[in-house]
């Protein structure tokens, strides 16, 4: 009856240690001198950072390591402003309260737009009455007051059929949600709530694909691979410029308004002094555009990267947004503005 001493509860522990020893007999490239760049933030920007980090590490042949987390734009800024990360990814500019938090901890930063995303309003390809939608009509559909009132397409525009609208949109924790509600309804996070919401854009893609009365908004990177099964609507901003389909050309030309949004990197000045971070930013500004395209995002015009890199080298601190959300800003406009801390 003394078997506890011989086997007993140590069993699973011993087992895990055996497995563990197996895991660690693998060659490990780690050494104490290796420099690490830590990046965290928006999951929308993640594919870009992942691609750049992957190529950068390859080029440095293991001398510099890069880690990328996805705490979300807000979660990323929290860590960034505590001085825990070198670079923060944002799918929106930094907000006033986050700037205050950074200032409190003595964290200064350089803001760099790195790519564009075009929020795409998509419907099923079977939808034969919608090709273009005005921002005013989108607002009629999505504003909080529409809840319970705008049920059918005919409630928005009498010329449209009397069919029930099935709505799909981003979940409340995503930057996509903040941006769309701000751009369409005029106030971030103000929206009707009776729609299918998901943080996972693939769920929205599948939902819109399967329902011929569906209408939803998704980031362009999620529309692009599914363009055979989804129909992207052209957007009429209502300023007499007519309907514009989401595309690289339209976004670069600044005509896809107000749903084109820039994506950002925020580099802490402390990190920017380190040679490895300098190298990383240089790598991003030169190889970035091709990598951005490869992961299906929309690169900025080449001049914008040049200006952005110049701002980095000059150490231009702060944000050009002043901590308030804004929609429909063209990239040329961004580059011309003065930054505020």
């Amino acid at each position: 009856m003394r078997l506890f001493k011989t086997h007993g509860a140590a069993g699973p522990v011993a087992t895990s240690l055996v497995v563990l020893a197996g895991a660690l007999s693998l060659p490990s490239s780690a050494s104490a001198q290796t420099k690490t760049i830590t990046i965290d933030g928006s999951s929308t920007v993640f594919p870009i950072s992942e691609a750049v980090a992957e190529e950068f590490q390859k080029q440095k042949k293991g001398e510099v390591r890069v880690t990328v987390g996805i705490s979300g734009t807000g979660g990323g800024f929290k860590k960034f402003c505590r001085g825990e990360t070198d670079i923060s990814n944002g799918s929106r500019p930094i907000l006033r309260q986050e700037m205050d938090e950074c200032a409190k901890n003595g964290i200064k930063f350089i803001e760099m737009p790195i790519a564009f995303d075009a929020l795409t309003v998509a419907v099923s390809p079977k939808n034969n009455f919608l090709e273009c939608i005005s921002v005013a009509d989108l607002k009629k559909i999505w504003e909080p007051a529409a809840q319970g009132k705008v049920i059918n397409y005919s409630d928005v525009n009498p010329a449209w059929p009397n069919k029930k609208i099935t709505l799909f949109g981003a979940g409340a924790d995503s930057g996509t949600f903040d941006y769309f509600t701000e751009a369409v309804n005029g106030k971030a996070k103000a929206t009707r709530t009776d729609f299918t919401a998901s943080e996972d854009d693939n769920v929205l893609v599948t939902g819109i694909e399967r329902d011929e009365n569906a209408l939803g908004y998704i980031p362009f990177a999620y529309y692009e691979p599914h363009k055979a099964k989804l129909k992207a609507l052209a957007i009429d901003e209502g300023k007499g410029k007519g309907c514009v389909k989401p595309s690289l050309e339209a976004v670069t030309a600044g005509t896809y308004n107000p749903l084109a949004r820039p994506l950002f990197l925020y580099v802490s000045t402390k990190a920017a002094e380190k040679p490895e971070v300098k190298d990383y930013v240089e790598f991003l500004m030169t190889k970035g555009p091709a990598l951005v395209k490869e992961v299906k995002y929309l690169p900025l015009p080449p001049a914008a990267y040049a200006t952005s890199y110049k701002h980095f080298k000059d150490g231009r601190l702060g944000t050009v947004f002043g901590g308030v959300p804004e929609v429909g800003v063209s990239v040329e406009d961004l580059m011309k503005r003065d930054a505020k801390i």
């Binding site: 563990l20 020893a21 660690l24 007999s25 693998l26 490990s28 490239s29 780690a30 050494s31 104490a32 290796t34 965290d40 993640f46 950072s49 992942e50 980090a53 992957e54 590490q57 293991g62 390591r65 890069v66 880690t67 990328v68 987390g69 996805i70 705490s71 860590k79």
Partner: peptide
């Protein structure tokens, strides 16, 4: 684990214990 800050892209292994 996401809350405490697990990473999503990490292309190296931790140092070996032995």
């Amino acid at each position: 684990l996401v809350t405490i800050g697990a990473l999503s892209f990490i292309a190296f292994l931790p140092p070996s214990p032995v």
